[in-house]
């Protein structure tokens, strides 16, 4: 069984996911094992998510202050089918340009309106100042919870949560990275950018 080791210590997201994917592809059709070293929880979650999406096995173990991820690959990487759903990318916490007070209240109104759609958006992506919308002090958490209950996936850029120092205030959904954001947009039936 072929084995590949990936040292992603000290590498920011999305590099651990990208390098793990490259290693899995190098294994070829016969499969094998990829061992990945990372140094943070977010990298563990993002690599695990990618591995699970491809139906491989993963075993994550702490090693000192780091983590070792043992991935068993049994078949070639799945070719992901495009989804037909709507992806909405919130790159800021206002709707439109102009008075920020008006922009903020319009965006709250917009997010409520999404809850009234017969088919909810498939995925909501939050980045830059849009990351504030999934935080504890957001005025739209109730509506985001309604959307999540209806099946919408909610993801917020980890780099942005770090930058605004609000990672510990994330109140809904998961932390994601640029690689996953681009992938979600690429597979969407339609992307709306706010």
């Amino acid at each position: 069984m072929e084995k590949i080791e990936v040292n992603a210590l000290g590498k920011p997201c999305p590099l651990p996911v990208i390098e793990t994917k490259k290693a899995i592809r190098q294994l070829g059709d016969t499969g094998g094992q990829v061992t990945v070293l990372v140094d943070n929880d977010v990298a563990v979650k993002n690599v695990t998510k990618m591995v699970n999406a491809n139906h491989y096995q993963i075993d994550a173990q702490p090693v000192g202050e780091n983590f070792q991820l043992a991935i068993t690959v049994t078949q070639p990487m799945a070719t992901q089918e495009p989804h037909a759903g709507l992806v909405i990318a919130f790159g800021r916490n206002v709707l439109g340009e102009g008075d920020p007070k008006l922009g903020q209240i319009l965006l709250k109104s917009y997010i409520y309106s999404l809850t009234e759609l017969d088919t909810p958006p498939e995925h909501l992506l939050f980045f830059n100042s849009g990351a504030h919308l999934t935080s504890q002090d957001s005025g739209v958490l109730d509506d985001l919870h309604t959307l999540e209950d209806k099946g919408s996936q909610i993801s917020t850029c980890g780099t942005c949560l770090d930058f605004y120092n609000i990672k510990d205030q994330l109140a809904i959904g998961e932390i994601t990275n640029m690689y996953a954001i681009v992938e979600a947009m690429d597979q969407a039936g339609k992307v709306v950018t706010i």
Binding site: L102, I105, K108, S109, Y112, S113, G139
Partner: peptide, 19 residues
């Protein structure tokens, strides 16, 4: 509506916005 929102924010009274 914006004035009302500001007052509720100041008083920390929960609310939601909708059209």
């Amino acid at each position: 509506a914006i004035q009302a929102q500001d007052r509720l924010d100041v008083q920390k009274i929960p609310f939601n916005v909708m059209p």
